[in-house]
């Protein structure tokens, strides 16, 4: 494809990204570095601040449990799920904006989302994280990494691999326009299990890959091998998703009050 077409594709995906994803990397980094006119996030660093901070957490789907400390961990886990389900909807809208995506076989669209969406969500989490913690609730709350590590097992094991990945991923210093293309590349993976018609998916991905390569050359002229480094991250991502799904399966078996959101159940069932 012509360079002008590749640039137009990059612009289109960046616009869709800004339209569907409410918390951009630019905004998240501004909040994390304190360079923002907005409110400083509420910090959750222990059970007491978790209970205080719950008023800020988007919890539309949470059943009304009583406010006891012993259920706080599960209740927090439920509000995370609710936000994740909303994020899946955002990613779906973004996927539909990728030129050619909605023309693919509908079953293949489902497969691409089923396998791609957790990878996309993990990439989107990276800009919200630093080595000390993560923004949640649209940037209104900062939850410390130490607090997440202090939760009882297996909850304490859920976020640590994402922090390790994110801290490394953030050193690549992608911006939101780079991220938009990378997310589209992830979604358009032609090797997902059960795809019916791989060729058109690979063709779409190839065009987006060309656009990403050009984007990185123009946007990061001094960052050598950035394109190759980024593609290598896709391998790490698959392992993180596999481990995450296994952890959720463990939770389903061991937690009596465990409720898994129906959309997340659909995505994780028979995934890996």
């Amino acid at each position: 494809p012509e360079a002008a077409d590749l640039r137009a594709l990059a612009r289109h995906l960046y616009e869709a990204y800004l339209k569907y994803f409410p918390l951009t990397k630019a905004k998240a980094r501004a909040i994390l570095s304190g360079k923002t006119g907005e409110k400083v996030p509420f910090v959750i660093h222990d059970m007491k601040s978790l209970m205080e901070g719950e008023q800020f957490i988007n919890c539309r789907q949470i059943p009304s449990l009583d406010h006891q400390q012993q259920v706080s961990t599960l209740r927090f886990f439920h509000s995370c799920q609710s936000r994740s389900a909303e994020a899946v909807r955002e990613v779906t809208e973004f996927a539909k904006s990728i030129p050619g995506f909605i023309d693919l076989d509908l079953n293949d669209q489902v497969t691409l989302l089923k396998y791609g969406v957790i990878e996309v969500l993990i990439i989107m989490m990276s800009p919200l994280m630093n080595k000390d913690g993560t923004l949640i609730s649209y940037g209104q709350i900062f939850m410390t990494r130490e607090f997440l590590k202090s939760l009882r097992k297996p909850f304490c094991q859920m976020m640590e691999p994402k922090f390790e990945f994110s801290v490394k991923f953030n050193t690549l210093e992608l911006d939101d326009s780079d991220m938009a293309l990378f997310l589209a590349v992830i979604i358009l993976s032609g090797d997902r299990p059960g795809l019916l018609n791989v060729k058109p998916i690979e063709q779409l991905q190839e065009t987006v890959l060309h656009s990403l390569e050009l984007q990185l050359k123009l946007n990061h002229p001094d960052s050598l091998q950035l394109f190759a480094k980024l593609l290598q991250k896709m391998t790490d991502l698959r392992q993180i998703v596999t481990d995450h799904v296994h952890l959720i399966e463990l939770l389903k078996k061991t937690e009596v009050d465990m409720f898994l959101h129906p959309l997340l159940q659909e995505i994780m069932k028979d995934l890996y």
Partner: peptide, 20 residues
Amino acid sequence: KEKHKILHQLLQNSTSPVDL
């Protein structure tokens, strides 16, 4: 198709199709 009912709905409807 039944196995991925909500994903199908999300893909086929553009505005708030599912009560998440």
